[in-house]
Design a protein around this nucleic acid. Sequence first.
DNA 1: TGATCCAATACCTTTTCGATCTGGCAGGGG
DNA 2: CCCCTGCCAGATCGAAAAGGTATTGGATCA
Lengths: 94, 94
Amino acid sequence: MSLAQLEYFVAVAEEGNVGRAAARLHLSQPPLSRQMRSLEDELGVKLFERTSRGVRLLAPGATLLPRARAILADVAAAARAAYRAGSDPPDSVS
Amino acid sequence: MSLAQLEYFVAVAEEGNVGRAAARLHLSQPPLSRQMRSLEDELGVKLFERTSRGVRLLAPGATLLPRARAILADVAAAARAAYRAGSDPPDSVS
DNA sequence: TGATCCAATACCTTTTCGATCTGGCAGGGG
DNA sequence: CCCCTGCCAGATCGAAAAGGTATTGGATCA
């Protein structure tokens, strides 16, 4: 599982449509389909139900979605925190 | 930033030694050095001080370390949760 | 039944990642 | 003082992964 896959997953879940999610991610549709499939394979569960009008979250997908969002937010926060720790010398009240 | 880089970072921080961390990760030393370098580049800060006897965490590294551990734990927990949501049918009291 | 929309597959290209080999720098023993 | 050892960094090469285009298959709707 990669952070990219989590971003992709969130986009697909939010759009309910692989093609539209791909556009939003500035990506083409087939790679995104494949990434979702390999994520499902790795987790050992189906995240989406594929219909003829798009995709719908299944229970495992619904469970994963908020966690994925939180993880991505934590990663961004960690990057910012590390950056600040470097800009600010060890102690600084300014 | 990738999850692999976070794992690598934790290993290097814990070992205080790139070569030993590489062995622990079943990886060779040069790729690990590069990954740490590219992580630093991406974050825009130095995470380690390189000495001739190993590496030592700088302030940004110290800030990142607990967050990296938490993120990795969250990822693992999310994977397990999704898997369970798939094994268990939607409702189950058993 | 023909048109349309969507996801999946096939095939290829490009980028990324890891391994091996080599070099440079600091400490420790003769 | 010199050499040897241990550690990190750089260069080059091959393998694996990711993305793009073109195409197919399936379902819905007029």
